[in-house]
């Protein structure tokens, strides 16, 4: 995959039963990109969290709408863009939340976005109330000129 950018697209009904299929799709592509087992697990979990959030919060578990996954792979990174057809939310409300205080109150849910941010190298959230939400997350194979994981050259 050296120097070539490749894109893969998956549009899938937003149901929890499809999370396994989404994880398989993403982990296989991460493996092909040359990420090691540890990074593959992180990528798989981050995408699971993003999609589970869409199903739970944007689609309220109804499964009638679709989740759009776009994966862009080049020699130095994998970027996954998860887009929903939901109603959006105020990003600042999520980002401002103090995790320690939140856990102290033993509240359920809302853990996913914090996991995504811990697991991935670069995360961008785009959403506004009334509009669709986009989560763009990147994991680097090469950062600051150093190879982080074993690379696979497709020749």
């Amino acid at each position: 995959m050296k120097n070539k950018k490749q894109t893969y697209h998956l549009k899938i009904p937003g149901k929890t039963e499809n999370l396994e299929l989404i994880r398989t799709f993403v982990s296989r592509l991460a493996q092909m990109s040359g990420f090691d087992e540890d990074d593959i697990y992180k990528i798989e979990l981050a995408v699971d969290e993003a999609c589970a959030n869409v199903i739970k919060h944007a689609y309220e578990g109804k499964g009638k709408k679709e989740i759009d996954l776009l994966l862009e792979i080049d020699y130095k990174k994998l970027t996954i863009i998860v887009t929903d057809e939901g109603v959006g939310f105020d990003v600042n409300n999520i980002l401002k939340r103090d995790m320690k205080e939140y856990l102290g109150q033993m509240k359920v849910g809302g853990l996913g976005i914090h996991l995504i941010m811990s697991l991935m190298d670069d995360v961008k959230l785009k959403s506004k109330p009334g509009e669709k939400t986009e989560v763009r997350m990147t994991k680097y194979l090469v950062k600051d000129g150093k190879i982080k994981s074993k690379q696979v050259d497709d020749g």
Partner: peptide
């Protein structure tokens, strides 16, 4: 995933 941790929190 966090859904599992959410069950414990609940």
């Amino acid at each position: 995933s966090s859904a599992g941790l959410g069950v414990l929190m609940g």
